[in-house]
């Protein structure tokens, strides 16, 4: 446990020390900030307030940006260690590979959660702007469910990015591979869920579309099937990453 903690602390520190972290943070905060401004415009034009949390967590700007943002966070996790040769130094200490993979996963997850903090601040500010006393805003339940959704989707995306990073010593390759998989599955899921001609394809698509899930979560619907789906996929990708690190040592 103490080895895990020192690895985890080191990961979090490195996440926040890398220049790419600040670039990612800068753009994601501009994006979520812009997203909030758009929401305010829509509400000023008389859109329903019930749309607010869905827009904040599942708006198109957010859904399209995550497949780019997360590979940029995860690309260095193992690729950099391979490049520097520090993976060899790590794996010749009593550290176990699962510990290492989990430390990197949770380190990236902490950084990812920090990216989302401003959005929750916006929701808080918005509550002060509520003109009508009849509607309670923000809807705390929907906010909480949205947070669950954000973390679940983020965890799965990070696990995918981590696997890509564990397969190569080139960060760019890791980032592009992660982006291709996440964006491809996002588009495929969205297509199946919303525009596929057959109804059964649309039902299947509903299970695979992360944007559909985000909209559900941010409406306050926490579907346990979806939670299990995300957790098990995340666990599977982490497991494969462990195997990849154990197998690929050169």
């Amino acid at each position: 446990m103490s080895t895990f903690l020192s690895l985890f602390k080191k990961e979090v520190r490195t996440c926040f020390l890398s220049p790419i972290a600040f670039v990612v943070m800068f753009f994601f905060w501009i994006l979520t900030g812009g997203n909030f401004i758009l929401l305010l415009y829509q509400m000023a034009n008389g859109d329903s307030l019930t749309m607010a949390t869905q827009w904040m967590f599942g708006g198109p700007l957010i859904c399209f940006s995550l497949p780019v943002v997360i590979p940029l966070i995860t690309m260095r996790l193992f690729a950099e260690e391979r490049k520097l040769g520090t993976l060899e130094a790590l794996l010749t200490t009593p550290v176990k590979v699962p510990e290492l993979v989990l430390a990197k996963f949770f380190g990236a997850l902490v950084f990812y959660s920090v990216l989302w903090l401003p959005v929750f601040a916006y929701a808080y500010f918005q509550s002060g702007m509520n003109p009508s006393a009849t509607l309670a805003f923000p809807d705390v339940g929907a906010l909480r469910a949205g947070a669950v959704g954000v973390m679940l989707v983020g965890a799965l995306y990070i696990a995918v990015g981590l696997l890509m990073s564990s397969l190569t010593s080139n960060q760019i390759v890791a980032a592009i591979a992660g982006f291709a998989i996440l964006f491809g599955s996002f588009l495929a899921g969205a297509y199946l869920a919303y525009t596929a001609p057959s109804a059964s394809a649309r039902t299947v698509g509903q299970f695979f579309s992360s944007s559909a899930h985000m909209l559900d979560f941010s409406r306050g619907v926490v579907d346990s099937r979806i939670v299990v789906l995300y957790l098990s996929f995340t666990a599977w990708f982490l497991f494969v990453s462990v195997k990849a690190v154990e197998a690929k040592r050169t």
């Binding site: 103490s2 080895t3 020192s6 690895l7 080191k10 490195t14 020390l17 890398s18 520097l84 040769g85 520090t86 060899e88 130094a89 790590l90 010749t92 200490t93 009593p94 550290v95």
Partner: peptide, 25 residues
């Protein structure tokens, strides 16, 4: 000590040695 002497360039010497000492129990 591996051939290329791999280290984390962004860490300080004390930090690095403390980290490694922790890992090595």
């Amino acid at each position: 000590l591996p051939e290329s002497c791999p280290l984390y360039p962004e860490m300080r010497v004390d930090e690095y040695l403390r980290f490694r000492a922790e890992l090595k129990g």
